[in-house]
Structure formats: C-alpha cells, structure tokens
C-alpha cells in the first residue's frame, strides 16, 4: 500500500472575541488544506483532482452531539462553497446526516431546493433507508438512500472527538450515521465494525476525502460535550486516506490527554483498534512511518 498524505492545518485567531468561528479564517484553512493535500497551486485545482464536474457530492457531517460538538456549519458551508467554485453544480451538493432534528440542533437550516445546495437528514420524507439489507462481514444494515442513490462521491467532514466506547470518533466512524442501526456496532470498541462498514461498497467506492474538524477538540469523556475537557485547537486534518486521517486525529487526542495528565486511550482500554483492523484490510495507513504529514499554519 502506498504512503498516505495528510495535511494538518492550524490556525490562530479562528475564534472571534464572542467565541464564534471567524469565517474568513475557516475559509483560508479549507483552501490551504486542499492545496497542501493535493499539491495543487489552488484549492479549485486540488478539488478537480478529487471530484469530477458531474459528481453528486455528499458532505457527511456528524451532528449527534448538538450545537457545541458537531461539525460546525461554518466549516461545512466553506467546503460546499469551495466545491461550487471548483465547478461542481450547487444542486449536486448535499450536506447531510441522520436526522433533520439533529441537523437543526447543530445549527443547520434545512433546504432541499431542486436547483441549489441541499441540507437534510435521512429521515426526510422521500429519502429514508434502503429496504434491501447490506450484509458484509459483521455488518448487516440498511443504508441511507442519500449515500446509495444521491451521492456519487463522498466527503466525511467529521468532528474529531474522544469517544467512551470507540476511543476516537472521526472520519471513518462518521459513516455510522449512514446506516439505520449504528447502535449495534459499539461492542468491542467498535472493532471491527468501523472498518467493516467502511469496507462496504456504498462507502469505500464513494469515499474521496476525509476532513476532520479539530477546531475545538473534546479530548475526554466524549462523545458528549463537556466544556472542561474541550480544547480550542484550531486544527483541520485533510486526507484522501480515511484511515490515515483518523490515525493522525487519534494522535492529536493522545497528545492532548497526555498534556492534561490523563491516561492514554490504550491505558483506558479503549484505543481505536479499528484503525489497525482497517489497515490490515487494506483500507489505508495506520502506521506513522507510512504517513506523510504536511503541516501549515494560517
């Protein structure tokens, strides 16, 4: 398997004095990340390496945790804007998750106009889940029709956070939100389920890009929001290798935990072993020696 490339973009001053995200800074981070990842001179050209002009792009976000610990709307819109500027049609872009309720609680305004950007959940009347079960290894699930029917290319734009069962939830586990029964896959630290779900045709064939939202990182007692263990880091992680992106995200959380005097996830018996499972399955790199990290600061 070839070496993975991961871009880690850091920003200072990404929060306004009121605590909101500073949109120009977010936009700049997105552009820098795409350029660093693809080595293209401009983000637009980088995106053209990843997506075809006629792709229907699903931006799968994670909104289960509510406003304070979900993929931030500023980030989602910034990416959608970049995609449109790269030549994709806005009507072919959807920002989505499981439910409309969770999207709204995370600060998204729902929309599904036929001619424009769409934002809605699988539970929208007319979307829903497939009725045909996908059975793959230990996975037996119904996929969201958004993932199976609408999307031809997928971005996992996931919040990076500690997870009491999985150890870390990031880009790969974000696809738990594309199936009807994620509650069945949290045993054994979500291993091998995260890897095996990613290995399904509906995900693996369509996944093109992982972007981890590490702007404010919940490094302990996740996945719920606890302000005392949430650190403003101002980081975004980009990779086309979903395993490598999550591996780098995991290491960020470990560094934060060490800095705060907390035990490592290994010591806590909840290391994200699904990453090494994914590597063994050939889904990407979970070995630091085989991950090239390009860092930049905005």
């Amino acid at each position: 398997m070839s070496e993975a490339r991961v871009a880690v973009i850091r920003a200072k001053g990404f929060l306004t004095s009121g605590g909101d995200l500073y949109q120009p800074k977010i936009d700049e981070m997105i552009q820098r990340g795409l350029k660093a990842l693809t080595a293209a001179p401009e983000a637009r050209e980088g995106l053209n390496q990843i997506f075809a002009k006629n792709d229907r792009v699903g931006i799968k976000i994670n909104t289960i945790g509510g406003r304070k610990i979900s993929t931030r709307p500023e980030l989602s819109f910034s990416l959608a804007d970049r995609l449109i500027k790269s030549g994709l049609q806005d009507k072919n872009i959807i920002i989505w998750d499981r439910t409309n309720r969770e999207l709204k609680e995370a600060g998204y305004r729902l929309t599904f106009s036929s001619g424009g950007l769409k934002i809605f959940g699988t539970d929208l009347d007319g979307a829903g889940y497939e009725t045909e079960l996908v059975s793959h290894l230990n996975i037996g699930s119904l996929f969201s029709t958004i993932q199976t029917n609408f999307v031809t290319a997928s971005v996992s734009l996931a919040i990076l956070k500690d997870h009491g069962l999985a150890g870390v939830t990031a880009g790969m586990k974000n696809y738990f939100g594309s199936i009807h029964n994620p509650n069945k896959y949290h045993d054994s630290n979500c291993n091998p389920y995260v890897a095996e779900l990613f290995d399904t045709e509906a995900v693996k064939r369509k996944h093109r890009l992982s972007i981890l939202d590490g702007l404010i990182v919940q490094y302990n007692r996740g996945p719920s929001f606890h302000p005392q263990w949430a650190e403003p880091c101002g980081v975004l992680v980009f990779s086309r290798d979903a395993v490598a992106a999550d591996y780098v995200g995991w290491q960020m959380i470990e560094k934060l935990r060490a800095k705060k005097g907390l035990p490592s996830l290994q010591e806590d018996k909840r290391a994200p072993d699904y990453l090494s499972t994914a590597e063994k399955m050939g889904l990407g790199q979970a070995n630091a020696q085989k991950i090239q990290i390009i860092e930049d600061e905005v």
Binding site: S114, G126, T145, F150
Partner: peptide
C-alpha cells in the same frame, strides 16, 4: 424507505 428526490 422510498425513492430519492422524486417524491420529496
């Protein structure tokens, strides 16, 4: 379950 986009 159901179709996609056609009957939103």
């Amino acid at each position: 379950g159901g179709g996609f986009l056609g009957d939103l």
